[in-house]
Each structure stands twice: as C-alpha cells, then as structure tokens.
Amino acid sequence: MNGLFQRSMEEHIPLEMIYLSENQQLSQRKLIVKEMNGDTIRAYCLLRKQIRTFRIENILSILPDSNPKKWVH
C-alpha cells in the first residue's frame, strides 16, 4: 500500500479507494496522495475537489485508477 501512495505522490497518479468513514459509511473515491503521516494520508480528493485526510486503517481497498487520465493538481 505504501508503494502505491509513494507512486501517487511522485507521479501524480490517481488512485481508486474504497473507504470506511468513522461513522461506518462506505465511499469510493479517486485521489492523488500529497503526503503520508504515519497512520494517515493527505490527498487531493477528486470527488470533493479538496485536500482531505484519510486514516490508513479505514482504507478497505486501494488500486491505481482504472481510467488513467493525466490529473494535474
């Protein structure tokens, strides 16, 4: 997982994530990782169009974007 985060940061490659929020809501997001901080990542969320913080333990699935356009943020 850390390898995907690192590649997203270095090459601005979007990742597809399934995430379980603190209130037990599932969401599917596309994001570009900006920073890793121990048990969290800060990433530009392409759904919300803003920087968000995600807890790594709540990430259920993470893969490279299956529809790779070049995102620049």
Rank of each mutant, 00 (worst) to 15 (best):
Q28P: 00
Q28K: 13
Q28T: 04
Q28D: 09
Q28L: 00
Q28E: 09
R29H: 12
R29E: 08
K30S: 14
K30H: 10
K30W: 12
K30F: 10
K30D: 08
L31I: 13
L31W: 07
L31D: 08
L31Y: 08
I32H: 01
I32T: 03
I32S: 01
V33A: 02
V33H: 02
V33W: 03
V33Q: 02
V33L: 01
K34N: 07
K34F: 07
K34R: 11
K34Y: 08
K34H: 07
K34C: 06
E35Y: 14
E35A: 10
E35Q: 15
E35T: 13
E35P: 12
M36R: 08
M36F: 11
M36A: 12
M36L: 14
M36Q: 15
M36S: 09
M36T: 12
N37A: 13
N37E: 15
N37T: 05
N37K: 15
G38L: 02
G38A: 00
G38N: 03
G38R: 03
D39K: 15
D39R: 10
D39F: 06
D39Q: 15
D39N: 14
D39A: 08
T40K: 15
T40Q: 06
T40M: 12
T40N: 11
T40G: 00
I41Q: 02
R42M: 11
R42Q: 09
R42F: 12
R42I: 14
A43T: 04
A43D: 07
A43C: 05
A43I: 03
A43Q: 05
Y44A: 07
Y44S: 08
Y44R: 04
Y44M: 13
Y44D: 05
Y44Q: 10
C45R: 02
C45K: 02
C45H: 02
C45S: 05
C45F: 06
C45V: 01
L46E: 10
L46Q: 09
L47D: 09
L47C: 09
L47A: 10
R48L: 02
R48I: 00
R48Y: 10
R48W: 07
R48A: 06
R48G: 04
R48F: 05
R48Q: 06
K49H: 14
K49N: 13
K49D: 11
K49I: 01
K49F: 03
Q50H: 06
Q50I: 00
Q50C: 12
I51T: 13
I51S: 11
I51M: 06
I51G: 09
I51Y: 05
R52V: 04
R52C: 02
R52W: 11
T53C: 13
T53A: 12
T53P: 13
F54H: 06
F54S: 04
F54E: 09
R55C: 03
R55K: 15
R55T: 14
R55Q: 13
R55A: 06
R55P: 06
R55Y: 12
R55G: 09
R55N: 11
I56M: 04
I56E: 04
I56N: 05
I56Q: 10
I56S: 03
I56H: 05
E57A: 10
E57G: 07
E57Q: 14
E57C: 12
N58P: 03
N58E: 08
N58F: 10
N58I: 05
N58Y: 11
N58K: 09
N58D: 03
N58R: 15
I59L: 04
I59P: 02
